[in-house]
Design a protein around this nucleic acid. Structure first.
Lengths: 131, 131
DNA sequence: GTATCGAACGTTACATCATAACATATCTAT
DNA sequence: ATAGATATGTTATGATGTAACGTTCGATAC
């Protein structure tokens, strides 16, 4: 559990829910888990998530419409993170690869494309589930 | 325009709509464009899209919840395609990079992860819009 | 020809994901 | 104290995706 020092109450609750979870959670699942803490509406969750994403404390998995706590909350990432999502057990591994980043940067430079955000998600089966 | 030889009527209509479009289309936007052709329900579009995705004639952009016609309908891709999405003009460029594919394969092999589908999407501004 | 089986189709209803709009409260710097 | 920014709470609604049902169409076997 990371310290949630400068987080607001809602942000802290949402991040806590993500950290406790085994795998990615949808916003509505988060909401359900936090009803007892006083959260009532999706927007409360989405607003907290927005901030957490900005701060790099959580990530959005686009192919799942779901969210995870960042696995490395203290290292400020370069902005290119890849996710491997096991479709059997739901586990998400987070990693980054400098060569991949360089290749994409090179492509962007050659094309004159100015990247702001890039997502990379590998769906499949983790070692345990493939066995 | 590619020939839509072994496509059914609905598949052909949906692919046609995607090919005519300047950029990605949501399923509901496709539906609206095809009302005059007799389509009435989202499922008709989603079912056609499923097949088109299977055949590699269309792609889903996860970060947009939208779809595009494949830019290279005749080359059967290796399964790793990257998309660069201009957030200003909506243009989507499709490309692939063997080095990136190799790096991700290597990671997967090392981790024992068995990939089935991977998505890579770069959001930002294209050359024209960045100028 | 017609029986049969699987794929595609059509329709209604519903589930899930996300935001608009507006009012209220809280925090911080002057 | 007050102004401005940020966070909050609430209702309603918009956007995206699917379940479950029955029907139609087209190939193949008889």
């Amino acid at each position: 559990m990371t310290e949630h020092s400068d987080l607001t109450r809602n942000q802290s609750l949402v991040l806590g829910a993500l950290e406790k979870a085994e795998g990615p959670l949808s916003a509505y699942t988060i909401l359900d888990k936090l009803r007892d803490d006083g959260l009532r509406a999706p927007l409360q969750v989405y607003r907290a998530l927005d901030k957490l994403l900005d701060m790099g404390l959580a990530h959005r998995l686009e192919s799942l419409n779901a969210f995870v706590a960042c696995a490395h909350p203290h290292c400020h990432n370069t902005g290119l993170i890849a996710f491997a999502i096991c479709e059997t057990c739901g586990q998400v591994s987070e990693f980054s690869d400098d060569v991949v980043r360089q290749r994409l940067d090179a492509w962007a430079k050659a094309e004159g494309f100015r990247p702001t955000r890039t997502t990379m998600e590998i769906r499949g089966q983790c070692r345990k589930c493939a066995a």
